[in-house]
């Protein structure tokens, strides 16, 4: 059997499930009963539902879930059914952070030690929900806000959002003779969250469950607002095979398209960097939404990624060293 060499300090941050540490660390999450039930109507291979399971494994029953309109709300709450074994509320598209603020204050009044957790898509976070999110973060409400980012409005059928990456084809940014797809880079929502000077901001990736669950655990302990931005592939939206969502999510980290980092008490910390930084091409070419790209376009994206990578390295105190 082939095991990836364990780099010692990596603990749960290592992507390789072949690692012994992973096997040891994952045990405590394996036996717990799921509070997000089967029978939901998410597409095959949905990345976001996996992330939700991870959240609930950590949060347990002591939370109230708030969701804006979006895929995960629609697939899990079709009346009279629900997939949620914890209290859950959906109000509208743009106000999940405000609803969670109200819940958080009510729980405080009642002396109940539970925390509202918002689980919102990228559209409900970076676009239409940005105002109420900003208000919530700025007031430092006792709320954990998790944005599952599938990089477009998947619920309505793959329209671009502010979170759609450069050159991705969506139904509203199709590629064509005169178009390369989305013409602007992705909005950096984690940076926006950090600008609110809250105690905890982190990025996560659904292929790195232990890292994500550790972050959720940490964020839940914080009194005040916390924000986690997690990349969750969408097979129909990204035009990838259902079985590949985790593989591709992992590639996003291995190519540094997506960097796992934390911002805590004013300090940046990169949680994981690949041993070998793979070219973004490997990530892009697996996806139908990028199939129209030529070498020059890929080079443009590579440059963007490298720039962001350098920027973060400068900001961060790197804890994983080879």
């Amino acid at each position: 059997m082939e095991y990836v060499k364990c780099r010692g300090k990596c603990v749960a941050n290592c992507s390789a499930v072949r690692c012994f540490t992973f096997r040891r660390e994952s045990k405590k999450y394996l036996v717990k009963d799921d509070l997000f039930l089967s029978g939901h109507r998410a597409c095959q291979g949905c990345g976001a539902t996996i992330a939700i399971r991870h959240v609930l494994k950590v949060a347990g029953r002591n939370c109230i879930i708030v969701q804006p309109t979006g895929c995960m709300e629609v697939v899990s709450t079709q009346y009279p059914e629900t997939s949620w074994l914890v209290p859950y509320i959906h109000v509208a598209f743009e106000n999940a952070a405000a609803v969670a603020s109200g819940i958080s204050r009510a729980l405080k009044v009642k002396g109940i030690k539970a925390k509202p957790i918002v689980i919102a898509g990228d559209g409900g976070t970076v676009d239409i929900g940005l105002q109420s999110l900003s208000g919530m973060l700025e007031r430092d409400e006792n709320v954990l806000y998790i944005c599952y980012d599938n990089e477009a409005y998947m619920n309505t059928g793959i329209q671009r959002s502010g979170s759609t990456p450069l050159f991705a084809a969506t139904t509203t940014t199709p590629s064509g003779k005169l178009s390369k797809g989305e013409d602007r880079p992705k909005k950096d929502i984690a940076k926006i969250a950090i600008a609110h000077d809250i105690k905890y901001v982190a990025t996560a990736n659904v292929a790195f469950p232990l890292d994500f669950m550790k972050k959720v655990e940490k964020a839940l302990k914080i009194s005040g607002a916390a924000f986690i931005h997690i990349l969750t592939p969408c097979p129909p939206g990204w035009r990838i095979p259902e079985s590949k969502s985790i593989e591709i999510a992992r590639l996003a980290v291995d190519t540094c398209m997506w960097i796992l980092y934390e911002y805590e008490n004013g300090k940046y910390k990169i949680n994981y960097l690949p041993t070998v930084k793979k070219p973004v091409k490997e990530y892009l070419l697996l996806q139908g939404r990028f199939k129209h790209l030529d070498e020059k376009d890929i080079e443009t994206i590579q440059k963007l990624v490298d720039k962001r990578y350098e920027e973060l390295l400068k900001l961060a105190e790197i804890t994983i060293q080879e």
């Binding site: 405000a98 609803v99 603020s101 109200g102 009642k110 109420s132 007031r139």
Partner: peptide, 20 residues
């Protein structure tokens, strides 16, 4: 709650009222 808009004002009331 010093909300940032009326939309959030009523939304926050919904959250608090739903929490009892």
């Amino acid at each position: 709650i010093k909300v940032e808009s009326e939309h959030s004002a009523l939304s926050a009331c919904i959250g608090a009222s739903a929490a009892g």
